[in-house]
Each structure stands twice: as structure tokens, then as C-alpha cells.
Design a protein around this nucleic acid. Structure first.
Lengths: 326, 326
DNA sequence: CTGAAAGCGCTTACAG
DNA sequence: CTGAAAGCGCTTACAG
């Protein structure tokens, strides 16, 4: 006896012959077409249920030329910022009757490029890219096959590709203004990033420091133990880290050094991931409008599918979330 | 002008006519069939490349009756234990020339069931389920369509479904033995779980305590502040938490209470996720053989696809990883 | 070494 | 209200 899994799945034809009708009628009935009598539809539904019929998405996709699936690409699974954005993309897609295929690249550019191709080969109708690591030529090639939208300041604008970002410069300014209002002057920026978002946040930090008349206090360091040690010895009273992950590093370092947070050192992050809520003390951070980002990304894709040709770049305003670390 | 994305993708026929041959020949050439002359293949490859041809996986899947894709289902994206297993499944699948479609259920049983269906509807050749939340009837129904393997003690054995687990009882015993060897007697177990793995770990804890003659010290509490507070007041010198997440909760609680870890309280987790390595102090924990779990899961699926009918349940031995928290 | 033909499981005009 | 037919883009015997 062949294994259960080898049993061929029932098709439309099976349902049709079991119900004594043509397969077209079954198709129409299953999809709720108006031209099928209520009694016939009922009968067909019952038979389909009985034989365990499930439509083949593969066949449907081939026939229709569209899959009703969106692909989502993230750099890696272990970045909560990215997975939380994916959740919002999924929610928005579901509202539009679309499903989402998730792919990740384990932080590897080549793998990321492969995943983009694979999603497209699979028939994804559009792509949400939440990673600044996908090579630009891959994005350009992808956009020739299906609409692509970049989410979260993932790279400089690429012609033909929409984007939805948060205003990193403004977010950084919110942090500096908050710390200045709390009386801090020696405010350092911790960053290891050479990615677009990191660069923008750094730029925002520097501009805000200048705007506050603190040109001389501008200090940018990497999140390594030596640099952090020097920083703490230096009289720095507040640290703005480029994201929550690095803010937690600073937090750990400060606590190890015996500093009390926020009394002796204020620490602020960016992204408002679960890390910020879980940190001890809970982290002041900058919140991006993640839900809006997901729904705008899906909306932009749908507009492209409906024929829009001009590029659209949306920028959302971030919001400061004050917790116990500052 | 229609948007770039509306441009129809080139098909085999396009390549064939551009190369002046039949589409069968193009198919054979692209797949490296031996019966195609080297010169012809070369020429066809060049043309395919030039017109930007990419084979439609949808069409291929429909024709072949198999997709060369495996589906992986996890409860949620924010559990590092699950995502790390997925990574090992992906690596193993890649070695077998298979790709992996990832789906998650946001901890929702209904959603999880939907995702299982969707992966199957999409044509997944087999399913790796890394979640104990998928309803059994859904698993049974899925197994009629394609082979399913459960990874990580996700539920009691289901007939027709293979599994690969780690020996949770033994892992728990390793922890107790380690703590006893360190001189601890009052060793409590912290758990909130009613899932199979949690239950097995608790059972292992209790058995090991008895084996060590510590019947009277057996104490099982939930990871909430009140219970933990009572525990610490109680003279408990060591805590074995059912997983790393809850161990970190204990760690935070102990540090908040001013206890030094491990001197005044030893803490041990389970799973050896990234949380354990990142914790302060770094967490002693139990490591499952994740890489082996992934490759065994894929191997079991392939055996089923090749016709194996009997169920196989594999149990792997865990290993204690001693760090600074004990 | 190469081509014509059938068919995977659907959907969708087109007839009746 | 229902059925016969064509076709989505592939792969695979079957001829030659």
C-alpha cells in the first residue's frame, strides 16, 4: 500500500463526476458565481466537502496570471524591528484578501537576492522589501517583474520603486530635544551603522545638537566596550543609541560599570521594539508608525498593480516614547 | 504606457522563437538534458539570458506534481527557539535541493490552521511543524495531503506523523544533577507551561530531585512576581526555569530584589537560545541539537516521500551548557 | 539531436 | 441555468 501522502488529491473533475455535473459548473459554484442556482451550489458544496476537495492554488495562479500573494523580504529573522513590520504588512494584506509569503536572508546579500528571485518565480504579485541589504541591481531587476516597495529607510530611492520610511532625522531630533529638556548637555551618539537609517539618525543627532547650541558636545562612538568605557569616563550624562539593540548594549555596559540609569546616565534607543519594553530599566525610544507602514506598503503595491507609473515615497513622523531610562 | 510591472514575462515560447527552435528543446537545454548538443544548449542559454527568461515555478509545479518546496510552520516569529530551528531546517533542505516556505501563526490556533492549509494549497511537498499549537485534527488532515513531521516535542505522537524531539526529561535531569553537584539542595522549578515540552521538563525535574534524595525540596512555581518573591524569601538557592525566556524573568526578578547571581541564587534555563548568551550573567542552559533536528526532520520527510509507511519518532540527547549564572 | 502533441488543474468566454 | 472548449507555462513520452 502506498503511503497516505501518495494518495492523489481530488480535483475539480473528481467533484464534478461525483456530483454529476461539469467541472466548469463546479468551479463557478465554488467561487459563488451568481449564475449558479442556489440548490445546485449547495449540492456541489456538499460533494466537494465530502471528497475533501481543495482548489489548487498552483493551477489557479497559472490560469489567472496572478497569485494574490505578496512576498515580504527581511534581512534576518532575529531582528524584532523587521518581524514586527512584517506582522503589520500581513495584517494589511489580509484586509485586502492577499496572503504574504515571508522570506529572509540570514543577513547575507547573495541569499537575499536568491529569495527575491524565488518569491517572484513563485508568482508573488508584489514585493515588500524590509531590508537595506538587497543589492540595488536585484531590486531594479525585480521591479521589472512585479511592483516593489521598500519599507523603513532601507536604501536611497531607486527609480521605479516606491518606499515608505520614517523620518529618522526628525526622530533623532526628538531624542536630543528630550534629553536637553531634561537638562543634559553632554549627549553622545552611539552607532555602529553604515546603513541609510543609521546615517540619517546620526545626521539628525548632529543637527539637533547644533540647533541646541551644543556643537562642542557632539560625540559619536561605536558600541564597543573600549569606546563605551571612555565615554562614561568622559562625563557623558546621556547616550542616544542608533537603535534599541545598541541601546541595550549601552545599558548593560553602564550597569556593569556600576552606573545607575537614568540617574547617572540616561539612555535612549530607537525603533520601540520588544527589546525596549523588556529592558531594565525600560528604554526610552523612538516609535515608528509600524502599523501605518505596513498598510501603506500594501496600498502602494496595489496602486502599482492598478497601473500607477510615478514613484511615490512616503515619510512618516516618528514619536518619542519616554520610559524609565531617561 | 503600462507600468513596467505589467510587462508580461517571457515564456519558453518566447525563448524558443527568439532562438529559432521548439519550446521542448529549450526546456531540455535549460534543464541540462544530456540529449542536447553542447552548441545548441549554449546558444539557447544565451538567448534565454538575453530575453530575461525565468521559468515559472507555478507551471513547473503544476506539471510535475511536486514543488520541491517544504513548508515550515512556527507558532510565532518572536520565539528565537523556533526561528533557530527553522534556520537549521532551511540549511538541511537546501542541501537536498529543496526550498522552504515559512509560515507563522502569531500564537493563534485558527491562524496556524489556516497557514497549514495555505502551505498545502500552495503545493508544499511536505510540512515541518515546529509548534505544539496546531490542532491535532488539522495535523491529521494535513498528513493525508503530504507528509508532516513535528519538531521539538510539540505534542503527543499523532499516528501517521513522524517527529523529532529532544529528551526533555533527560535535559531536566542534567540540570538538577549539575545544581546538586554545585552543592544546591533547595532547587525550585519555575514553569508556566502546560505544553508537552514543559510538562516533560517538569516531570524530569521531579524525578531527578527524587533520585537525588531531595523529595522534600521539590517546589514548582509560576514565573509571576508574587510566586518568585515567595520563592526567594524561602531560602531557595537555585532555580531551574522551563525555558530561557522564563529564566531571564527569574534573573531580572532576582537582580531587582538585590540578589547576586549566581552567588546568592543560581539560575538555569533551557533551549540555549540567543537570550541565554545575551543574558547578564550569561545563562547556564540546556542545548538541544538544533542542527541535527533540522536535518533529521528533512530526512524523515524525504523518506516519507519515497514511500515509507511506518511512523518514526526520533529522540535526541540534550547537552548542558554551563555559563555564569550557576 | 530535435519537434509535435498531450496534459497538469484550474478559469473563462462562448454557446445553448 | 449548464456544458464543451480553449489556454495559462511548463515537462515528457513519443516519433523521426
Amino acid at each position: 500500500m502506498p503511503p497516505a501522502s501518495a494518495r492523489p488529491r481530488p480535483t475539480l473533475v473528481d467533484v464534478a463526476s461525483a456530483a454529476g455535473v461539469s467541472k466548469s459548473l463546479v468551479s463557478l459554484a465554488l467561487r459563488g458565481d451568481a449564475g449558479v442556482s442556489e440548490r445546485t451550489r449547495e449540492r456541489i458544496l456538499v460533494v466537494a466537502e465530502r471528497v475533501g476537495y481543495r482548489p489548487s492554488l498552483t493551477a489557479r495562479t497559472l490560469k489567472q496570471g496572478r497569485s494574490m500573494m505578496l512576498g515580504a523580504v527581511i534581512s534576518s529573522l532575529d531582528n524584532p524591528y523587521h518581524t514586527e513590520i512584517v506582522a503589520s504588512v500581513e495584517a494589511a494584506a489580509e484586509d485586502s484578501g492577499l496572503s504574504v509569503l515571508l522570506a529572509h536572508g540570514s543577513r547575507d546579500r547573495g541569499r537575499l537576492a536568491d529569495r527575491v528571485q524565488q518569491l517572484l518565480d513563485l508568482g508573488a504579485d508584489g514585493l515588500v522589501v524590509v531590508s537595506s541589504w538587497v543589492p540595488e541591481e536585484v531590486l531594479v531587476a525585480a521591479a521589472r517583474r512585479a511592483p516593489v516597495v521598500m519599507v523603513g529607510r532601507t536604501a536611497e530611492p531607486v527609480s521605479g520603486i516606491d518606499s515608505v520610511n520614517n523620518d529618522d532625522e526628525h526622530g533623532a531630533a526628538l531624542v536630543v530635544e528630550h534629553l536637553v529638556a531634561r537638562g543634559h548637555r553632554r549627549i553622545a551618539h552611539v552607532t555602529s551603522s553604515t546603513r541609510p537609517a543609521g546615517i540619517a539618525r546620526r545626521r539628525g543627532y548632529e543637527a539637533a545638537m547644533r540647533a541646541a547650541g551644543l556643537d562642542d558636545e557632539v560625540r559619536v562612538v561605536a558600541p564597543d566596550p573600549v569606546a563605551l568605557g571612555a565615554l562614561l569616563d568622559d562625563g557623558t550624562s546621556a547616550v542616544f543609541a542608533r537603535n534599541d539593540v545598541e541601546a541595550v548594549d549601552v545599558l548593560d555596559h553602564a550597569l556593569d560599570a556600576g552606573l545607575r540609569v537614568p540617574d547617572e546616565l540616561a539612555v535612549v534607543g530607537y525603533d520601540d521594539t520588544v527589546l525596549a519594553r523588556r529592558a531594565r530599566p525600560a528604554l526610552t525610544t523612538v516609535q515608528q508608525q509600524r502599523d501605518v507602514m505596513g498598510s501603506r506598503a500594501v496600498a502602494l503595491l496595489r496602486e502599482r498593480l492598478d497601473g500607477r507609473a510615478e514613484d511615490v515615497h512616503e515619510v512618516l513622523e516618528p514619536r518619542l516614547v519616554v520610559r524609565s531610562s531617561s
